[in-house]
Write a protein that binds this DNA or RNA. Sequence first.
DNA 1: ACGAACTTTCAATAAGTATTGAAAGTTTCA
DNA 2: TGAAACTTTCAATACTTATTGAAAGTTCGT
Lengths: 167, 167
Amino acid sequence: MKYKEAKEELIQAWGNLGYSWGLNKTMAQIHALLMISTKPLSTEDIMEDLNISRGNANMNIRALLDWRIIYRISVPGDRKEYFKSEKDIWALARQVAKERRKRELEPILKVLKSVNEVQADGTDETKELKKVVKDLKNFAEKSDNLLEAFEKSEENWFWSTVVKMFK
Amino acid sequence: MKYKEAKEELIQAWGNLGYSWGLNKTMAQIHALLMISTKPLSTEDIMEDLNISRGNANMNIRALLDWRIIYRISVPGDRKEYFKSEKDIWALARQVAKERRKRELEPILKVLKSVNEVQADGTDETKELKKVVKDLKNFAEKSDNLLEAFEKSEENWFWSTVVKMFK
DNA sequence: ACGAACTTTCAATAAGTATTGAAAGTTTCA
DNA sequence: TGAAACTTTCAATACTTATTGAAAGTTCGT
């Protein structure tokens, strides 16, 4: 397989992976491009390489900055902004976990806590609802704690512990 | 909070949770409805409760069956099909993990393995690409193993191990 | 084999998301 | 301060995905 072909396949695959991690396709593709680039790229570079418009490039670059998985780089004597990605996949995974916990899990926990206060009127429906909410809340809280710990963990330690855990 | 209000909020919240788990909104809402229902529901019941069309209800019920997180129930003397959901959240989480591993992680692993065969032509670009692919493949394989083990694990054992792990 | 009861399909359409590109905004420096 | 170099915004539009509902298909009891 040639470099160009491999590069395109990887950007494509990363686009999909990113999507299932909660990014959107273009975001993930820009990230992939920065991952395999040997030097920081400008908005212009990204536009050309992925064949996307300036607006689109700009928007998605900002989203990636917002997720804190790419960084701004300034080159002395050049007014353009350049970008490079976090290249450590472990750091990337932790960061994504952190953002998703904040964006998805926490709002749901909030709702579960409020729904938990449904009036106990003695009907079966209410009982069932309370039970489901309790179970779900319990699960969500445990997941939240697990993710929080994951965000703070060390790669080598994490995997070796996991290996022991499932042996 | 009244039952009706709580029910609606829960279905809404579950819709969001399900979405971030890779289901779509309606699928997740049907599932939520079945979770809190005290008895199996027919397509008709679901249509009425969620205010959706027959086609939509049918499609999403089938998708849920396909994910194996709801089941068909037949009531003797009644020709309609009824559905009930898996109510154990742990079992649900494991099943979702299983489906997503199959649907998302495995295809990406396949691509990574093929991209890995890029020709080493000695350029920096190729070196960088090979490095990224190697790291990503390594991470994806480890995640795949972790998920596989998770799918087979027991709830109590899992959480108690996790607690120990991050203590 | 017929028709009632039920389920599935699918073309049309609605709703939601992503993308464009030109205009407006900002920064820098001569 | 002026204007070139660059970034951001946003209304218009293209693209994607979800939803509808009527028609076609299936199943079952008589």
